[in-house]
Design a protein around this nucleic acid. Structure first.
Lengths: 197, 197
DNA sequence: ACTAACATGTAAAGCGTTACATGATTTA
DNA sequence: TAAATCATGTAACGCTTTACATGTTAGT
């Protein structure tokens, strides 16, 4: 029996999509993308529509999800394909969540990359980059806070809410780190400015 | 004249590599990768060797870097290709650093993705994931601290050192956020445990 | 009726990694 | 001289995005 069939390896995005389905609802690709934008986005990047669609196809092919077409006759507004997690999929995502190694987070911090090249920038430009980043962080913090509040104390969303709380603190941290770096730059240029060229 | 030649768009990794060269030294692919691992890594992921080599080729083709082969006769230990930034490249990376839009950082936080799926985990497993992540964060913080100290007050490394200081605070934050979430989970399971199944 | 926004997908292209191949230098 | 490590690169593959194609619904 050469075909082991199960224990299929998936890219992280695949597990994320399967995780979305693991909350039990039947979702279309569009639903998945929207939900990812509203929750995953705070700590995981949100995949594009096309990526979502192809991951769903892969999940079905692996036996982790099943799909059906629904159309006007089923009460829906139009034809579309909706997906539901299978027992196999539920077991697989549970095992992944429990057993996968704890990998370091991946960070690609564009603003820091630019400040790392501070020798190419004017102080005013550095302040501009940091200021915009601080605004972004505060905006994300605000959204995480609002979403956490909207979730209320619903038992079913306890853990998603916990990660929203984490995100609220994380983006507050980002905001404050930007402010601290603004101060550092201020100090650095003050000590140079009067003396240097 | 249909061929505008310059103002070539690059992927972020390309700018990162060109940024490394912008400090003025002549570097081989191996040097670039090692340096990226030691500095960029704290706030930007470090590209693989093969990615570094292909980016260097692209930079040369764009006229942003020049290369020469050096061998035994030049005092080197063996044949290799070393790259140096050109005037054009210097102008391009400066313009990028000054003009590019301030994009949000990209975060793929595996540990949070797993905790978001807390309904699939036992409390002990959540604590394990968070504990490992906290250790990773503390280790990164320690390295950033050490590297910042090693840089000393060298004028030339002022901005890279500033970003190391930022990283030190960032990873201290990650560490503390993990600890805070451990407490939250403790509270959540305590209120459930005695009552629930 | 027209437009904008919603919704579902496919196709093509590019980014980035892993695996592989090769040879030099150092250490035992 | 054998093994481990350093160093440089290529090839194949897979993930992910952008651009495109298509049709629907809601507002004006």
């Amino acid at each position: 029996m050469p075909d082991e069939t199960n224990k299929r390896a998936l890219p992280a995005t695949g597990w994320a999509v399967l995780g979305l389905l693991s909350f039990g609802q039947e979702l279309s690709g569009y639903d998945v993308k929207k939900w990812a934008d509203r929750s995953l986005r705070f700590f995981y990047w949100s995949p594009s529509f096309s990526q979502v669609y192809s991951e769903l196809r892969r999940l079905e092919e692996a036996g982790y999800a099943s799909s059906r077409r629904i159309g006007q006759e089923d009460g829906g507004a139009r034809d579309k394909r909706v997906y539901r997690i299978t027992e196999t999929g539920m077991a697989a995502v549970r095992e992944w969540a429990q057993q996968a190694p704890v990998d370091p987070p991946v960070l690609k911090h564009g603003p820091m990359l630019r400040l790392w090249l501070g020798h190419l920038l004017e102080p005013a430009q550095m302040r501009d980059v940091l200021g915009r980043h601080r605004e972004f962080a505060e905006e994300m913090r605000r959204r995480a806070e609002a979403d956490a509040a909207a979730a209320g104390g619903e038992e079913a969303w306890a853990f998603p809410t916990l990660t929203l709380k984490w995100a609220e603190r994380y983006y507050a941290g980002e905001r404050d780190l930007a402010a601290a770096m603004l101060d550092d730059i201020e100090a650095l240029t003050a000590e140079r400015g009067p003396a240097g060229a």
